[in-house]
Design a protein around this nucleic acid. Structure first.
Lengths: 195, 195
DNA sequence: CGTAGCATGTAAGTTGTTACATGATTCG
DNA sequence: CGAATCATGTAACAACTTACATGCTACG
C-alpha cells in the first residue's frame, strides 16, 4: 500500500490561498489550521525546495520591496492540478492514536481515583477549545463575508465543535461513573453491613 | 519539551492484562484497541527486547508445552511501577491531523460536487464503525461480566460511539449544505431570473 | 500436500519533531 | 538598546510503516 505524503498537500493547499513564504505557511498552520493540522519548519522548508524542483510551485517575483527578505511561493498549473487530484481522491484512513483512551483502558491498574484528574483535565481543555472555536466561527462571519472559501472553512470548525461537545458529554458521564466505582471500591463492606 | 514514547506504554499496558508474546500484543491491538490504537511488528519486537533489557518485563517460564514456540512476557514490578506512573501522569497533547478536514478546508478549488463523495464516504465508514462499536459494547457485557477492567473498557467504547455519532450528524448537515452550494453555483442566473 | 494461521523478526525507507544557529527589523 | 518578531534554515534524532524472510503447525 503506497503511502502518501500529506505534508506535501497541506503545503500545496496553503499556497492555494495565495502567495506564501515558508514562514507564512507555518503561521497559517498555527493560526488557521491549528485545530486539525500542524506542520513544523523542519518539514516546511525542505519540502518547499522539493516542490519547487518538481515544478509544482515557483518563487513569486516580488514587485514590491527590495529589502524584503521574504521568498514567497505560488502554485504553478501543475501544482494546482496535483492538489486538485489529491483533493478529489479518497481520504486515506489514518491509524488512530488516542492517548487518553489508552490511559483509561488500562486504568484498572491505578484505580478510579487516579483517572478522575485525567478526565477532568480533558473536559477543561475541551471547554476551552470550544470557546476558541466559537470565536473562530464568529470571526469568519465578520471577516470573510462573501469569500467563496468561507463555507468550507466553517464546515471544518463545525465538525470541531461537534466532536468537542461529544467529548465534553463523555467526560461528564465518565466522571460520574468513576465516582460511583470509587465509592463502591472504597467501602467494600458497606453493602454487606447494610444487610 | 521531552517526547515520550507512547508505544512503550501501550505495550506495557497490553502486558498488564496478562502474559503475552509479541504476536499476542499485535493481535490485542488489532482485535481490542483497534478503534483508538495500533502497533506494527516493526515496533513491537524490537521494543520487547529493549523493555526486557531495562528489566521492565521478563520472559515467562512456560510451564506448559515443550514444543511451544511462543515467548510470552510478563511485567516485572518495576515495569508495573513505570506503567502506573505514566497512567497517573497528564495526557500529552497530540498534534492533530485530520485529512478529511484538510480536504474540506481547501475544497473551494474543486467545488462542492467533488467534495460530496468524500463526505458521503466518511458517513458510510462511520456508520459501519458504529455497528462494530455497538457489537463490542454488547460482547463486553456478555463476556467480561464481573471483570474489574470492564468498566474502563466500556468507557473507551462509549467515547468512540459519541464521536462517531458527532461525525455522522456533521456529515448529514454538511452534505445538505454542499447540495445547496452546488445548486446555487450551477445556476448563477436562476436567482436573477426569478426577480 | 497445500493453505491458512501461528510466530518471530529485520532492513530500508519515510516522516516528523526538537533544538539549535543566524541575522534582520521593528518598536517601545 | 533590548526585546520581540520576522525569516530561513539545518542536524540529529525518534518514531513508524512497509515489505520481506523464515519456518512451524494444524487442518481439510
Amino acid at each position: 500500500m503506497e503511502r502518501v505524503n500529506r505534508t506535501r498537500f497541506a503545503v500545496l493547499g496553503v499556497l492555494s490561498t495565495g502567495p506564501q513564504s515558508g514562514y507564512d505557511v507555518k503561521k497559517f498552520c498555527e493560526e488557521v489550521l491549528a485545530y486539525f493540522w500542524r506542520e513544523s519548519y523542519g518539514q516546511i522548508y525542505p519540502l518547499l525546495r522539493t516542490l519547487e524542483a518538481e515544478g509544482l510551485i515557483r518563487k513569486e517575483k516580488s514587485e514590491l520591496a527590495e529589502g524584503d527578505r521574504r521568498v514567497a511561493f505560488v502554485l504553478t498549473d501543475s501544482g494546482r492540478k496535483e492538489l486538485s487530484e489529491w483533493l478529489s481522491g479518497p481520504v486515506a484512513d489514518q491509524p488512530p492514536r488516542n492517548e487518553l483512551l489508552l490511559k483509561v483502558f488500562f486504568s484498572n491498574l491505578i484505580g478510579p481515583a487516579a483517572v478522575i484528574p485525567q478526565v477532568a483535565a480533558h473536559e477543561a481543555a475541551q471547554q476551552q477549545l470550544r470557546q476558541v472555536l466559537m470565536g473562530v466561527l464568529f470571526s469568519l462571519d465578520s471577516e470573510m463575508d462573501g469569500d467563496p472559501q468561507m463555507p468550507y472553512w466553517k464546515m471544518t470548525v463545525r465538525l470541531g465543535l461537534r466532536i468537542c461537545d461529544a467529548r465534553i458529554e463523555w467526560c461528564k458521564e465518565t466522571l460520574k461513573e468513576l465516582q460511583t466505582i470509587k465509592e463502591k471500591s472504597s467501602m467494600p463492606s458497606a453493602a454487606a453491613m447494610l444487610e
